Computed example of a mutant assay.
Amino acid sequence: MIGYYTILVLGCVGAVVGNAPPYVQSAEAFVYAKTFVSEKLPNRKMDIHKVDDRPHLSFAMLTGVISGLITLQDDSVYLYTRLERVDQFIPYLWNKYDIVSQQTRSHIHDATQKVALIINLINSICGSMNVEKCNAEVDKRVKDSPFIYEPPANLLLSLGNLSVVIRDNEATINSIIENDNDIPYLIHNVETKEFSSFLTLVQQVVMKLSALAYRRFLSDF
């Protein structure tokens, strides 16, 4: 939901407009998704006895389990099935809303900071351009200066892919958490192809977040 090349430049990129990565769309989807998630995980105490708090607690359960399952994605030995992991995580997460909320909001803040360079590039060069031309010019800048722009650009695209899934499934998520169906949903869906694809998107974002931090560390020397 955030929005966003001299005439010669535009003429040169015109032929590749349709092939440019969707930077603008990814940025917009990321803002939408992070706002949605932040609203579901407010930074305050929760009480399961309060009806208004239960959807937040339910969303925290979904978020916490997904975060835990990412570690299984990296486990080449697969000591536990996903269902076994869910069975392990649920009792632990039951009273850990504050931890899940803080960690998730911290990841969102980290991601926002790490794509700020490419977001600022979009905002500074695109102005009133249409989306296709903006994407093409951003892509040209990224390719002209890959060391500077490529890591945050790739991160933004991964965030966009993940965010689109969250945005497109907003109604389903709301239905799950408003009816306290988080645990039944997880039991019936953690081993499906759709859920696996979602975990892969989350894992890609996590890996690119870590890689970008590592690259920044190296560039200090």
Rank of each mutant, 00 (worst) to 15 (best):
A15Q: 05
V16C: 13
V16E: 08
V17C: 15
N19H: 13
N19A: 05
N19G: 09
P21S: 12
P22R: 06
Y23I: 11
V24M: 00
V24P: 00
V24D: 00
S26W: 04
A27F: 00
E28I: 00
A29M: 09
F30R: 01
F30M: 05
F30K: 00
Y32T: 08
Y32H: 12
K34N: 14
F36D: 03
F36Y: 15
V37W: 11
V37M: 14
S38R: 14
S38I: 02
E39V: 08
E39S: 10
R44K: 04
K45Q: 11
I48D: 15
H49M: 10
H49R: 14
K50R: 10
K50F: 08
V51P: 05
V51I: 15
V51K: 02
V51R: 11
D53Y: 10
D53A: 03
R54H: 07
L57A: 00
L57T: 01
S58T: 05
S58G: 14
S58E: 11
A60D: 03
M61S: 03
M61T: 15
L62F: 08
G64M: 06
V65T: 12
V65D: 09
I66C: 05
S67P: 00
S67L: 05
S67F: 02
G68Y: 08
G68Q: 10
L69G: 03
I70H: 12
I70A: 13
I70D: 06
T71D: 11
L72G: 02
D74F: 06
D74Y: 10
D75Y: 09
S76T: 09
S76I: 01
S76V: 02
V77L: 14
V77W: 10
V77T: 15
Y78N: 14
R85T: 03
R85H: 05
D87G: 10
D87N: 15
F89H: 09
P91K: 09
P91H: 12
L93H: 14
L93T: 00
W94D: 15
Y97L: 06
D98F: 08
S101L: 00
S101G: 04
Q102H: 03
Q102A: 12
Q103R: 10
Q103Y: 01
Q103K: 07
Q103W: 12
T104C: 09
S106V: 02
S106Y: 09
S106R: 02
I108F: 15
H109W: 12
A111G: 13
T112N: 03
T112I: 08
K114R: 15
K114E: 13
K114F: 08
V115C: 12
A116S: 15
A116W: 14
L117C: 14
I118Y: 01
N120I: 12
N120L: 12
L121D: 01
I122V: 03
N123F: 04
N123R: 11
C126V: 05
G127K: 04
G127C: 03
S128K: 02
E132S: 14
E132R: 11
E132P: 07
K133W: 07
C134E: 03
C134R: 01
C134Y: 06
C134A: 04
A136D: 07
V138D: 04
D139Y: 13
K140I: 07
R141L: 00
V142N: 07
V142E: 04
K143C: 10
K143H: 13
S145R: 13
F147C: 10
F147M: 11
I148H: 02
I148D: 06
I148K: 07
I148N: 06
Y149Q: 00
E150S: 07
E150L: 10
P152G: 05
P152V: 11
P152Y: 11
P152K: 13
L155C: 14
L156V: 07
S158P: 01
